[in-house]
Design a protein around this nucleic acid. Structure first.
Length: 357
DNA sequence: TCTGGGGTCCTAGGACCC
DNA sequence: TCTGGGGTCCTAGGACCC
């Protein structure tokens, strides 16, 4: 097997939501800005979606409870997310990036992998191309991106995070292992908080530690992911840049302002979620077969329950009825409810469905 | 510190079929 | 009376991503 040398980019927009907000409203530029849930003077529920670098200087981070952010920096500009705007800007950026690559894989709203193997001849060439993409985005969108360049997706992803904001990091194949070795294992894709803690318990802190560790032990502890992690730590990743086609599920969920035991209010909220989910599937011309509900009690205990219907449907009545059936047993429990959610999956497009009959 | 909302993928067990 | 092996589908929970 002669594996062709690849050139992969990972492009990551810098503090995307807050950067877009600053662009739209220059008066907030230079101030700490936080996009997320309403902080309600420190009593708000929810988390920080994105913070700009001025806010990060106070210790604010994505995913942090908004109440904690408020305590760290009450004077920041707090904004609710404007998703329609971010999606619009995201589309424009992705259209720019797409022109530069043969293979394109969007990753969330503001990141993308590009395979530019057939567009460049060497690493220097790749760097020039990456710079060009950054420049076009800056010129057309007045936003900065950081790009990581590497021989595979894994390294490109770690590299894009290496220098931020407005960064460009090229990691040649022959330098990959050395580049990764001193970094914390948490920097690796798929090593989250839980896995990080388990690795730490084994004495594994850096990616270098992980690369040197016995893969059979990793395999017995983490299964397939263990071997995957070991390969990643050595800079190896054969996964392709692949366009994602079609969603697998559509869901909506909502956290109540206060935990509640009011069944009427809960069921009413459930109905609204069903309507939203059905509307979205209808817009995308999708039929669904499986309905799931999610319930989170006070204290964060979370359950899901699913039912697969005998046939595909897109009727809101089917959705409401099934969701209600699934949820009802959970309302008898002597705990207040924090969140409910509705999801549909086993999706088939209506067009495809027609051809089946 | 007290945890949003939108997703994907994996695992493990059970039902069911041949 | 005791009991295979492979495959698919479904469910519940959990980890991870942005």
């Amino acid at each position: 097997m002669n594996e062709k040398k690849r050139f992969i980019f990972h492009l990551d927009m810098d503090h995307f939501y807050t950067a877009v907000e600053e662009r739209e409203n220059p008066t907030i530029k230079g101030k700490p800005v936080v996009v997320g849930s309403n902080p309600k003077a420190g009593k708000g529920r929810g988390v920080v979606s994105t913070s700009n670098y001025e806010a990060r200087a106070s210790g604010i981070r994505s995913g942090m409870p908004i109440s904690q952010a408020w305590r760290l920096c009450p004077d920041a500009v707090y904004l609710p997310p404007n998703f329609p705007l971010y999606i619009q800007v995201s589309r424009e950026i992705m259209a720019i990036a797409r022109k530069y690559a043969d293979k394109f894989e969007q990753w969330g709203i503001d990141e993308v992998f590009l395979d530019v193997t057939n567009r460049v001849k060497d690493w220097a060439d790749a760097e020039v191309l990456a710079r060009q993409i950054k420049q076009e985005i800056k010129a057309k969108e007045r936003l900065t991106a950081s790009i990581g360049v590497g021989p595979n997706k894994l390294i490109a992803k770690v590299a894009s995070d290496f220098q931020k904001p407005d960064g460009l990091t090229v990691v040649r194949e022959e330098d990959a292992e050395k580049f990764l070795a001193p970094l914390a294992v948490r920097k690796l894709l798929w090593v989250g908080r839980k896995t990080e803690a388990k690795l730490k318990a084994l004495g594994i802190n850096t990616i270098g530690d992980l690369a040197r560790y016995d893969p059979t032990v990793l395999s017995s502890m983490f299964g397939v992911m263990g071997l995957q992690m070991h390969l990643s730590a050595r800079g190896l990743d054969r996964s392709e840049v692949e366009e994602r086609v079609g969603v697998k599920s559509v869901s909506h969920e909502t956290t109540f302002e206060e935990d509640t035991a009011d069944s009427d209010a809960i069921l009413q909220a459930l109905d609204s979620l069903c309507v939203e989910v059905q509307k979205e599937t209808a817009e995308q011309k999708l039929l669904f077969k499986t309905v799931s509900i999610k319930i989170r009690y006070q204290g964060f205990e979370t359950h899901t329950k699913a039912k697969t219907l005998p046939r595909l449907t897109n009727r809101v009545e089917d959705l409401k009825k099934t969701a209600r059936e699934l949820l009802l047993p959970y309302l008898d429990v002597d705990m207040k409810i924090r969140l409910i959610g509705v999801r549909v999956s086993s999706l088939v497009s209506c067009e495809k469905q027609k051809t089946l009959f």
